[in-house]
Design a protein around this nucleic acid. Structure first.
Length: 256
DNA sequence: AATAGGCTCAACCGCCTCTCA
DNA sequence: TTGAGAGGCGGTTGAGCCTAT
């Protein structure tokens, strides 16, 4: 009944890892390499679940793990990537050498999320005065070429649509059911100078500029078959974004 | 010095995706 | 094409540490 557990939990150690277990796992992986996690505990002589071994190695024992405080630069990058990708911790971690998804997730939950909440409450106050950001977002979703799937375009007003896409940049629509990302023609036309001159905040301009770079990079059809001009009427899924982030071009624009 | 409450982060859980036979 | 198993992922938990009283 139900799914078979990944391993027999009877007689297995749980909780914090001992120094001996760490050493045993490290020695085994140094000799035999990563992978075959299910068999690894038995082969290595560890009384642990394979998943537990994998997690311990990836999050703690790997030699390239960077320990210590997150730098201001890393923090800025996490902010930007989270704004773009949402809670895609592994994707975010992929852009921060030596950092793990678990570490970034913890850091976000304990530090950055609070600051974002504070910033949002400040922004709400600001919005009630000028409605600048709201206007820009509404414009984005009213552009004629916005790709809106029929099951989302069900008569909700713009505000509700914006609420669903709060974790990505304005001009994007995130379908949380399918994880598809939709882009408005405001961004496709790259009218960022207008957005800038209209007085929207710097984060908005930075966010849209990043996506402009993304779209320009994906114009290289030979090297980026995932996203082509003919696809503009189709949703851009996050795998495409992931592909870009993991490409050389992606690294350049994130780091620069 | 004792302790209650808050915080951090390693570890676990369960679901999802990918791979391969 | 399909189903089982392995790996990967994000959310959650709880032990241990820190801080305020």
């Amino acid at each position: 009944m139900g799914r078979k557990p990944c391993c027999d939990k009877e007689g297995l150690n749980r909780g914090a890892w001992s120094a001996w277990e760490d050493k045993t796992l490290t020695n085994y992986i140094e000799i035999h390499g990563e992978g075959k996690w299910r068999d690894l505990p038995r082969r290595a002589g560890l009384k642990r679940c394979g998943k537990s071994c994998r997690l311990r190695w990836l999050n703690y024992l790997r030699p390239d793990i960077k320990r210590g405080n997150i730098s201001a630069e890393e923090e800025e990058l996490i902010f930007r990537l989270h704004k773009l990708l949402g809670n895609r911790w592994s994707l975010i971690a992929g852009r921060l050498p030596g950092r793990t998804d678990n570490e970034i997730k913890n850091y976000w939950n304990t530090n950055l999320s609070k600051r974002v909440e504070q910033a949002c409450s400040k922004q709400d106050t600001k919005k009630s005065e000028s409605h600048q950001v709201q206007v820009i977002r509404t414009k984005a979703f009213k552009c004629k070429n916005v790709v809106v799937p029929s099951h989302l375009d069900n008569g909700h007003d713009d505000d509700q649509m914006v609420d669903r896409s709060n974790n990505v940049d304005p001009g994007f629509l995130m379908d949380f059911d399918t994880n598809d990302l939709f882009i408005s023609d405001q961004l496709l036309n790259s009218d960022f100078h207008q957005a800038q001159s209209s007085g929207c905040d710097q984060d908005l301009v930075d966010g849209t500029s990043k996506i402009e770079d993304f779209l320009m990079a994906t114009d290289d059809h030979d090297h980026n078959p995932i996203f082509q001009p003919s696809d503009l009427e189709e949703p851009v899924d996050l795998n495409a974004l992931s592909y870009f982030l993991n490409s050389e071009d992606g690294g350049q624009w994130i780091i620069s």
